[in-house]
Design a binder for these strands. Structure first.
Lengths: 107, 107
DNA sequence: AGGATCGTCAACCATTTGGTTGAATATGCC
DNA sequence: GGCATATTCAACCAAATGGTTGACGATCCT
């Protein structure tokens, strides 16, 4: 995967990883804490975090024995810009956004 | 893959499929014409088009023996909205966009 | 009818993906 | 030192992905 967009979009394609990003939106977190709400092994979450890191969507910094995960908005922004380059999109429509949030809540 | 974002982002993760979308930005195209610039079989392109269709990113309509492919911006817009929900992004930054285009041209 | 063109289907293959478990490494605590 | 905690590594597995080829069904043209 040469083009950075490949790894960014591939990373975003997994719901577990999108959920992790949403969690990190709140605050930086340790790997164990990221894993806590998920019904899957710590090793699996560790792999997801590695994928997000390779995509540039998060960064990880080890302090002591805990590794802190931090959202890195730049990569996401690049993907967002790619989408916007499909120019006919009017700048974000709040109605669409509200419908989206409503749809999310139904799940 | 239940969440529509799964299939949209998965579809966008492949460079061939992003290239197809960019082509369709110009105009609607027949499957054979979509396939022409790629060094891969028609069947492979047909599969890529099926993936884009399932993701809702394009639609296909058969008229006579040719099947026309048409960009469907709504699914893309939904993904774009999801990204924007990572709110700290200021509304699209033209400088970032110009840097992006410049970087693309270098390839 | 017969032939060429458009596109998909089916079977197959190699590679990647997303998960598991158990062992290993590194750090902090007493 | 010795134990608990935090995280990754390695080997493995099932399923999905991205490609191939060859046969097939539709449609158009003469």
């Amino acid at each position: 995967m040469e083009n950075p967009l490949d790894s960014v979009f591939a990373a975003l394609a997994d719901p577990t990883r999108r959920a992790i990003l949403a969690m990190l939106l709140e605050d930086d977190m340790a790997v164990t804490d990221v894993a806590e709400p998920f019904e899957m092994s710590l090793a699996a979450i560790s792999k997801h975090l590695a994928i997000l890191t390779r995509a540039g969507l998060i960064s990880q910094e080890k302090r002591g024995r805990v590794k802190w995960c931090k959202l890195e908005p730049d990569a996401l922004r690049e993907a967002s810009v790619w989408m916007q380059s499909f120019g006919q999109f009017e700048p974000v429509n709040l109605d669409a956004f509200e419908r989206f949030l409503e749809a999310e809540l139904k799940d």
